[in-house]
Every structure is written in C-alpha cells, then in structure tokens.
C-alpha cells in the first residue's frame, strides 16, 4: 500500500493515509467495514457503502469538538453538498454537507454523546457516518493533497479574519 502523505499546515503535519479517498469538504471516504446494516432504501442498496470522517486537516482547523448535530435522519437520501448537520468546536463552527450523493445509511451514534473521538481518532473510531453511493465524486490522496496545497493560502487568509 502506498505511503501516507503529509501536508504541512504551517508547523503542523496533517497526515493523509493512502488507504482511502477524500472529499472536497475535508472528509475521508473508505469502504465501510462489515457488518453492514440492512439496506434501508426499499429498492435495495444504491451503490456501495462508504464510511466518512474528518481529515486531520479539518480537525486541526476546528480543534476540540464540543457539539455535533445532524439535521437529516439515517436512511434519508441526500444530494451532494446538501446540508446535513452542524458542528461546533473550540475554534470553529460550521454547517456540514454531504460529501457525495446517496443514502445516508447511519451515523456514528457514539459521537453524539461524546464527540471527542473525532479529535483522538479521526481516521478510526471518530468516523461520522456511512453512505451508500458512488465514490466518483471523491479524490485520491494525491489529488486531495494538491487540493489542500492549492487552497492553503486562501484558507490562511480566511482564518486571519479576512473574508
């Protein structure tokens, strides 16, 4: 398996594992490990089941997660970039959007009580939700790295309070 890539956010090293793909909204995308819940849409599963979580890049920007809230229900069909929830952290707040189109099969219920897994194990137990759909909208780790690099200056400007 290819090596993980490391994107330098200033002095902070954001590790991007090479075993998965990445969405433009700074979530990783990995085939969901079994056991899978039953397909929820009556027509059967729509595509493969993928698990999503935040990348280190996203977590570094947000820092400690205080509160996570989903605005759609497990089983809902969502469009790409549809608003699905909200997050509040020590440094940031943001609406959250669907990384791909498809069935939002289930959420990581553990996070609703204690979202700290997002901080300590964002690539593992800190996963956010699983969706059935296609990963065609996602990027390879190298593409995501390039995407981060291309947007880094703009992101810093935004962080500094400029619009």
């Amino acid at each position: 398996m290819a090596d993980a890539l490391t994107f330098m956010m200033g002095k902070f090293a954001a590790v991007l594992p090479a075993d998965r793909r990445y969405a433009r909204n700074h979530m990783w995308c990995l085939a969901a490990p079994p056991p899978h819940p039953q397909p929820l849409s009556p027509g059967g599963e729509r595509g493969e089941l993928f698990r999503f979580g935040f990348t280190t890049y996203a977590v570094r920007l947000m820092q400690d997660v205080y509160f996570l809230d989903w605005e759609v229900n497990a089983g809902d069909v969502v469009a790409l970039k549809q608003k699905i929830g909200h997050i509040e952290t020590s440094k940031a707040m943001s609406d959250l959007f669907a990384p791909i189109a498809g069935d939002l099969v289930r959420f990581n219920a553990d996070l609703l009580n204690d979202p700290s897994a997002i901080n300590v194990d964002m690539y593992g137990n800190g996963w956010l939700f699983e969706m059935a759909g296609s990963e065609s909208e996602t990027m390879s780790v190298q593409d995501y790295y390039n995407f981060l690099e291309a947007g880094w200056e703009k992101t810093q400007t935004m962080l500094k309070g400029h619009m």
Binding site: K91, F97, T155
Partner: peptide, 11 residues
C-alpha cells in the same frame, strides 16, 4: 469567537 468553516466544508 468561532471561525465559520462552512465555506471550507462545502457550503
């Protein structure tokens, strides 16, 4: 005060 990352996260 919190940064609004909505744009970054796909808004």
């Amino acid at each position: 005060l919190k940064i609004d990352l909505t744009k970054l996260f796909g808004g």
